[in-house]
Simulated assay, not measured.
Amino acid sequence: MSTALASTVAKPRAARRWTDALALIVVLVGLWQILSEWLGPDVLTTPLHTVQRAVHIVSDVDFPQSLYVTSLAFASAFAISAVAGVGIGLLLGARRLAGNVMEPLMMGFYSIPKVTLYPVVLLACGLGLWAKIVFGVMHGIVPIALFTMNAVRNMPPIYARAARTYRMSPGDFARFVLLPACVPEVVAGLRIGFSLTLLGTLIGEMFASQSGIGRLLMIAMNRNETSTIMALALMLFVFATLVNMLFLAWQRHLTHED
């Protein structure tokens, strides 16, 4: 009975959420159209023209190769950021002293404009895939580690006491207690790290790459092709938004939010 009631209550909430999202999209598109007419197409293209340009770019014969290059670099960078970030966060969260020492250091590193470190990355990795991966990891790993570390620190102490009572090994404690208890906040960190890793990968492609979506953006910026810039930005925005919605839905499911 309670399950049926909860399902009945959840449906109107879900419908209202989708209605609000649709209304927000309509408002944003309307504002976009107004700004485009006010500033002119040389500054900001209209939504319709931007979508048409995006369709033209996607149908170009060279676009699949650019998409593959960017996807490979980004997927590799995000996988490394996620695994390493969660691992570092679990370790620093469990070792409070180490966490207190490392947290300000990580925040200090993250406050540095990553572009200033790009020459170092190029000297270490050269031009190619690894430079883009490293640049993406530099952007994404710190937020994931910090979210995970704070999740461990906020874990109820009873969990650790129960693990000690059952004499669990550190590996079993991390696998069966720490990670499951921290998953909702870890997912929140992954959601933030996803967008920042994508940003870092694209910036890496813009500065030193012979292919990829970032390279297409740089070429369009050099040629002052506003429509191409807007079309690529729209595609990246839609992709990042959809993936973030999936992460958010996963997080709500884990926290039992409707």
Rank of each mutant, 00 (worst) to 15 (best):
L146P: 02
V142H: 02
T3D: 11
G136P: 00
F207S: 04
A94I: 13
S59Y: 07
T116N: 13
A82Q: 07
A145W: 04
Q33H: 09
L44K: 11
L122P: 10
C182H: 05
L199E: 00
M168N: 03
V186S: 05
M149N: 05
L236V: 06
L35H: 07
L190R: 02
V177I: 14
K11M: 14
R223A: 11
L5S: 14
Q65W: 06
A131C: 12
G212F: 02
D42G: 10
G93A: 08
P41A: 04
V121D: 03
C125Y: 15
L129H: 12
G204C: 07
L72S: 14
L127D: 07
P104E: 09
L127R: 14
S227N: 11
R16S: 14
I88C: 09
E225N: 12
P41H: 03
A21L: 15
P143R: 06
R17A: 15
P41S: 05
P64A: 07
L196V: 09
I57M: 06
G30S: 07
T226E: 07
A174C: 11
P180E: 08
R252Q: 12
R167Q: 09
F194P: 02
V137H: 02
A231I: 04
L90F: 12
F173I: 01
S81T: 13
G193W: 00
R153K: 13
L236W: 00
G189M: 03
L39K: 10
R16N: 11
F135D: 00
A249G: 11
S76I: 12
L127K: 12
